[in-house]
Design a protein around this nucleic acid. Structure first.
Length: 472
DNA sequence: ATGTGC
């Protein structure tokens, strides 16, 4: 698969075979997936075969191989023209996402309290595979309230302040959630996990603003040089995973009934306007709300730790989901169409003036949160009007080594030692998990962020560097 | 990503 270079930041995969639209990869030549056996670009082409897909099958600069769809992929289908929805286009970790909190202190003033803070965070942030969370729900009926209300329900129950919700995508809750489509097994897995990081690339990081590229926009986001921040990256845990599993199975069986053929079974899908499509959309939105409530609970734990360690408060800058399918209206060939926009490892990036922005960010635009790899920088970017990918941007660095490869090359104990030697406090949940997340296993985040700006997807606002990592 | 896998 060799895409054609159109600009230094935009590559095109021409239509052929069953593709209904071309593929467009926003990347530099060096960021294109190149590892032997990495099928990400083939996946971009496969996605272009989905019924109802419009304009192009897109990939962000952090694109890499995923389940059916590439991670870092964006695909929109026309809801009113037989367009499909696919669980593989959202991913197993539904509404995995990132939130950024800004502390009312700066790096120099805070540094004497950092170690104490990290110890408290290390003791109080639930993390690791299969373990429990901060908020045990009473049973299915309370779970249904959470699946409907998302972060709003968490705040209503005292886990946060109303201002938090203003700074959450969709005010913290997708309205199309249908808890009745979340199976009992998914509910059971989720009851004990609200307020937990999970594992893999999930983390809670204490960071500092290292560089400011756009002072006015940074100020509008509440960010200034040297400021201490907290970045939380987590998803919908076992509940989201089970929702994906359950609905992939249903759609795999219903493909024939809708006369859909896809080049890869992992692209199982159904028309958005069909019982399996509607059911998945409702279950996916419910799981997304679970992910948002999860980040809200972890926010409260971070606030408690900062208050205890240093008497410092934390304000929410923004919360974005980067694994979703959402019904949005966009122009296609100059005509507004209702589209089902799949963003898998890609975030929404609203430009200045967009009606869905919180009032106090209307002039500035949406904060686009781009977490780096453990021990490396992270970025806050902002949406731009010239975004050509249904207002989507990258979601992080993007893997280049498999977990298996990382384990062969790196030892967790040694990695922690190296990070501590660089002045970054590390509180891991397992040595193996730490080794799998070695920065060497990922693309360089500085390059990815620069390519995202070069492609016109979003603009750089600030660069953050880690002071301490609580690892899932 | 995931009570980690054909």
């Amino acid at each position: 698969m060799t895409p054609v270079e159109q600009t230094p930041f935009r590559f095109r995969i021409e239509r052929r075979g069953v593709m209904r639209v071309p593929g467009v990869v926003f990347a530099t030549r060096e960021l294109l997936p190149q590892a032997a056996g990495d099928m990400a670009l083939e996946q971009v082409a496969n996605v272009a075969a989905l019924p109802g897909i419009v304009r192009a099958s897109y990939a962000m600069p952090d694109v890499h191989w995923g389940y059916g769809f590439p991670i870092g992929g964006v695909a929109a289908t026309d809801v009113d023209a037989g367009g499909v929805i696919s669980p593989g286009g959202v991913g197993f970790d539904i509404s995995c996402g990132v939130r950024l909190l800004a502390a009312d202190t700066d790096r120099g003033r805070f540094s004497p309290r950092l170690r104490t803070l990290m110890d408290i965070l290390g003791d109080t942030i639930p993390r690791g595979v299969g373990r429990g969370g901060l908020w045990k729900l009473a049973g299915r009926s309370q779970m249904e309230k959470l699946l409907t209300g998302g972060a709003e329900y968490a705040v209503e129950r005292g886990h946060g302040v109303p201002r938090d919700l203003v700074r959450c995508e969709d005010h913290g809750a997708l309205p199309e959630a249908d808890p009745s489509q979340v199976g009992q097994r998914a509910v059971d897995r989720g009851l004990q996990q609200v307020g937990s990081l999970g594992a893999g690339n999930h983390f809670l990081e204490v960071q500092a603003v290292d560089e400011v590229y756009d002072t006015d926009t940074a100020a509008a986001f509440g960010l200034r040089p040297g400021q201490v921040c907290v970045m939380i990256h987590c998803g919908s845990r076992g509940l989201g995973h089970q929702v994906c599993t359950d609905h992939v199975r249903v759609m795999d069986h219903s493909l024939r009934a809708y006369g859909i053929s896809v080049p890869d079974r992992q692209l199982a899908c159904a028309p958005v306007v069909s019982p399996p499509g509607r059911d998945y959309l409702g279950a996916m939105a419910a799981a997304a709300n679970y992910g948002r409530a999860n980040r809200q609970l972890l926010t409260q734990a971070a606030r408690h730790a900062f208050a205890t360690a240093a008497g410092v408060g934390l304000d929410l800058v923004y919360d974005v989901s980067h694994n979703t399918a959402k019904i949005e209206t966009h122009d296609v060939d100059g005509v507004p169409r209702r589209l089902c926009v799949h963003r898998k490892g890609a975030t929404l990036a609203l430009p200045p003036g967009h009606p869905n922005l919180p009032e106090d960010l209307t002039e500035a635009g949406q904060p686009v949160l781009v977490p780096g790899t453990m021990g490396t920088a992270s970025y806050v970017m902002v949406g731009t009007p010239e975004n050509d990918a249904f207002l989507s941007a990258c979601h992080g660095a993007g893997r280049v080594w498999s977990r298996h490869q990382a384990l062969r090359r790196v030892r967790g104990e040694q990695l922690r030692g190296e990070m501590e030697a660089h002045g970054i406090a590390v509180r891991p949940s397992s040595w193996r998990g730490l080794a799998e997340e070695t920065p060497d296993a990922y693309k360089d985040i500085d390059t990815v962020a620069a390519a995202t700006e070069g492609a016109g997807l979003a603009r750089l606002v600030v660069r953050l560097v880690p002071l301490g990592v609580v690892k899932g």
